[in-house]
């Protein structure tokens, strides 16, 4: 018991606080232990055995699952897709989101309606998003092909989700459509902290909009830029729903990412241990990003930079 604590709080109070505290967190700790910590420990165990889902005492196989994973061409293909997803799925929403935020920055009257319209796609369930975009990409009468035909580009029309060359990017475009509103909203709240005096002064000095963006706005919202990047990075490793719903990883594995590959390995091919090992790789890759994100977030709050 620390002396400092003792001097400020009477022993009786401290004891009462301990009792209430333990009572208040007990149900949570039980839930966390049973539904998170225990299966997490089990995941590590699964990766060192050969579990088929039935055998109660699966044989120990050492690092076999790991060596198999690193020699598996499909794993590298899926991981490569994750990397493409991360790069494009970060860069494009950042650029579009920033442009939208700058456009919206000084809109006063209808601003709220625009913000609602832009943010809505982000809160919709991915299943509904996947279904409706499937129609938009429909090879026969989908809007993408109809628009291309109207523009005289009918030659480019294709079955966007059925064609292995386009499926991955078509799904990604859907994901970008959905996440951009989120990026925009974060940027908008960051722009609120930009020094307006400096903007005024620079305008009087004859600085143009491009220079304002580069030398005044961007440096001031840089921390938020980094934060959004980390969020999309973590999301890029963990992407599952939208791909699983729209293509299931197909056609011919063209849209497979780590998440869908882990799922199919475990639940469709009954290679439980191998699927778990793949899932642990996603975890190992995304945890450093998440840690960096938390650090960054804490530093931002300390600086009072907002968002």
């Amino acid at each position: 018991m620390g002396a400092a604590l003792q001097s400020t709080t009477p022993r009786v109070t401290r004891r009462a606080q301990t009792r209430l505290g333990i009572a208040l967190i007990a149900p949570l700790m039980l839930l966390v232990a049973v539904f998170f910590l225990f299966p997490l420990g089990n995941a590590i165990y699964y990766s060192f055995v050969d579990f088929d889902g039935l055998n109660p005492t699966p044989p120990f196989v050492g690092l076999d699952n790991y060596t198999r994973m690193f020699a598996d061409a499909e794993m590298w293909h899926a991981l490569g897709n994750n990397v493409i997803w991360i790069v494009l799925g970060t860069a494009i929403p950042l650029v579009i989101g920033l442009v939208q935020a700058l456009l919206l920055w000084n809109v006063r009257h209808a601003g709220i309606y625009y913000r609602l319209a832009f943010f809505l796609p982000y809160v919709l369930p991915q299943v509904a998003i996947g279904i409706v975009w499937g129609w938009i990409y429909n090879p026969v009468n989908g809007w993408v092909n109809k628009t291309l035909e109207a523009l005289g580009l009918g030659g480019l029309a294709t079955g966007w989700l059925g064609n292995p060359d386009t499926a991955f990017y078509a799904v990604m475009a859907t994901a970008i459509w959905s996440i951009t509103g989120f990026v925009l909203i974060i940027f908008l709240s960051a722009l609120r902290n930009v020094d307006l005096e400096q903007m005024d002064a620079s305008r009087l000095d004859g600085v143009n909009a491009g220079q304002q963006l580069r030398y005044i706005i961007l440096p001031q919202i840089m921390p938020v830029f980094l934060m959004v990047t980390t969020v999309t990075l973590v999301g890029g490793f963990q992407v599952f729903d939208i791909i699983f719903i729209m293509t299931g990883g197909g056609p011919a594995n063209a849209t497979n990412v780590m998440g869908t590959y882990a799922y199919t390995s475990a639940f469709q091919l009954s290679q439980i241990s191998y699927g778990t090992t793949l899932a642990l790789l996603i975890t190992a890759l995304s945890i450093p990003c998440a840690v960096a994100l938390n650090r960054l977030q804490r530093r931002l709050s300390l600086q009072g930079t907002g968002a």
Binding site: P39, N42, Y46, V234, A266, A279, T283
Partner: peptide
């Protein structure tokens, strides 16, 4: 739980 993705333990 904020750091570890659901993927890590969904199968077990």
């Amino acid at each position: 739980g904020l750091l570890v993705p659901f993927f890590a333990y969904m199968i077990p």
